[in-house]
Design a protein around this nucleic acid. Structure first.
Lengths: 186, 186
DNA sequence: GACTCGACTAAACAGTTGTTTAGTATCCTA
DNA sequence: TAGGATACTAAACAACTGTTTAGTCGAGTC
């Protein structure tokens, strides 16, 4: 519920809470009323601002994609010395998002789904990966293995006992990848 | 719609059509009426046979998990010489399922989701992988990378132009994996 | 041949859904 | 300061949801 000293606009609060709830339960299980409640406004205001639930979902999609593009642009502009160049996407992401960010979970729903926004986002990621890999196949392979951690995060945590997206888990996972891969990137 | 010369029991037809539709659109977007229609029966019969939509979903879960266990048992009993031992799970699966099987798509929804059945299944898969890997971390790494193809199938097909779960695509993907991994498995 | 039981259906039911309506309050601008 | 837009709400709405009810039909049993 939106607290009294929440200085976000109602519109932003609705968008943020929708993102959070969509990531948590999936858009289908989240009602407009619940979004309104979480944002501290009426259900009618949700559709007043966004037109429809579907349009809100598209707005959230664009918002998330926009966030990511910002991160990648910044990443391309001044490459992080801590990255080893091809180090994991998940790693770069986690270091730039608040630890309780709903974005990773939202991506895990967006990327494998049928939503065109997921396909568009994947294509962007692929283009980026393409620039550091000798062949398209290799780029796809590395990208997919990287994203897999995001998609199966909770399953991995379940069997290994460590969240692979935590600082410690990510280090171990990256080490495992380094052991498994040839260093070969040209 | 169930045709006149469909010799499945109505119960089996409902279960099969539910599996197909769940895989296609996700359980939330599939109504009991639609399942009934696809199976050629009334909506009331669906709940008559399974108690509720939720119970039907659980039945379908168990059915799919049962199918997979059958495949794995058979695989363990007489290992396929075409497999190189640690060759992809997806590969083994695809060779044993009809080409239009909804099972891969269903798995892609089950495994990353919050459904306990997905977690249970993943644990089983992990135990199997554990037996061929030197450490739990390595087992998880190989398994996850293998499953990633299943989860991101359409995204990969989109950027590479070839379905990675087709005969040809799978061969190329496996080759890519072989290039990328150390051969080292002991 | 009455009786039972399971498969099966059409129709009704109650709750929930996204959306609309009609209205109030608050702000900006001319 | 009048007026028109904008933010916002409570209530109503129609469509759809999973489920229940009441019943028909047909195969098997005594």
């Amino acid at each position: 519920m939106r607290s009294v000293d929440d200085d976000r606009t109602a519109r932003a609060a609705i968008r943020d809470e929708a993102l959070r709830l969509f990531a948590l339960d999936g858009p289908d299980r989240v009602t407009v009323r619940r979004i309104g409640e979480a944002a501290g406004v009426s259900a009618a205001l949700v559709v007043h601002h966004f037109g429809s639930k579907e349009a809100l979902r598209e707005t959230v999609d664009r918002h998330v994609v926009g966030l990511l593009e910002g991160i990648f642009d910044e990443l391309a502009a001044n490459p992080d010395p801590a990255d080893d160049g091809r180090a994991s996407l998940a790693d770069a992401l986690l270091r730039r998002l608040p630890p309780d960010s709903p974005v990773p979970a939202y991506l895990a729903r967006l990327l494998p789904g049928d939503d065109p926004a997921g396909a568009r986002l994947f294509r962007r990621l692929f283009e980026a990966a393409r620039r550091h890999a000798p062949t398209p196949e290799r780029a796809a392979f590395l990208l997919v293995n990287d994203l897999a951690v995001l998609l199966l995060r909770h399953r991995i945590a379940d069997v290994l006992g460590t969240d692979p997206l935590s600082r410690e888990g990510l280090a171990r996972w990256t080490a495992e990848a380094a052991t498994g891969y040839e260093k070969g990137r040209t």
